[in-house]
């Protein structure tokens, strides 16, 4: 099977896969960025137990974590236009991925903030830091370091979840592979390129993140 691969076909298909990888990276970049911002804001609100808003954020987290991205995307793309809210495929994909990722990032940051040891907070208060100073110089830097492994896992998770956006008619890697199989019956070649594309996208990130994880351990104090 491996010997019979049509290498010419593979070479000709490379630009298609390249475009699709670029789309995946673009979607993932914006979704991850927005998720991080959302996560940071929400986790600070949850940490300080702001009345009212905290409850809404909790509800959002449960909704987002307990429903599949595919259904979220279908609702955004096919459902919402019926009540007058129409978004392009790319916007839908970024909004959907951010709706999903925001809750995961919130949980990651919150886990980090809660893991900053009590003595750190108390020492900060006893040397006369204000609440904002405490957050800015003591809690957030350590929380961020503690959160790195779970933030990294979320980044990989979101990058992989982009494989679902083909369901709302975006020409992503999944649809490129599917079309090539449908049009040319080059099944082995198309699938091989598909797997290779995801390896190229995810593997380096996974290696970098496990290295980073070992590095930031040094930033923790108070154990």
């Amino acid at each position: 099977m491996v010997m019979n691969l049509d290498w010419e076909f593979i070479a000709e298909s490379l630009p298609l896969y390249g475009d699709a990888m670029w789309l995946t990276l673009k979607l993932a970049f914006w979704a991850i960025l927005f998720s991080l911002v959302l996560g940071l804001i929400f986790s600070v609100i949850l940490y300080y137990k702001v009345k009212g808003i905290s409850f809404i954020i909790q509800a959002y987290i449960e909704l987002s974590r307990n429903t599949p991205l595919l259904v979220q995307l279908f609702f955004l793309y096919y459902g919402l236009p019926k009540v007058g809210l129409r978004m392009s495929e790319v916007t839908c994909a970024i909004v959907g991925l951010t709706f999903l990722g925001g809750s995961y990032m919130t949980e990651a940051f919150r886990g980090g903030m809660e893991a900053v040891s009590r003595t750190q907070v108390e020492s900060g208060l006893s040397i006369g830091l204000s609440r904002t100073q405490l957050a800015r110089y003591v809690i957030l830097p350590q929380a961020f370091a503690i959160s790195i492994p779970s933030l990294g896992a979320n980044v990989i998770f979101l990058l992989k979840e982009t494989s679902i956006v083909g369901a709302i008619a975006l020409m992503d890697l999944m649809n490129v592979a599917k079309d090539l199989i449908g049009m040319h019956y080059k099944t082995a070649e198309s699938l091989l390129l598909l797997v290779a594309a995801y390896l190229i996208l995810v593997l380096p990130l996974s290696v970098v993140l496990s290295w980073l994880e070992r590095k930031v351990r040094y930033a923790e104090f108070g154990d």
Binding site: I156, Y185, L203
Partner: peptide, 23 residues
Amino acid sequence: LEAFRIIPILVWLYVVHFSFTPL
């Protein structure tokens, strides 16, 4: 384990779905 952690599940579904019958 890493094969499942790195390659999305949808890709594995496609690989089995499209390759078993023809190949």
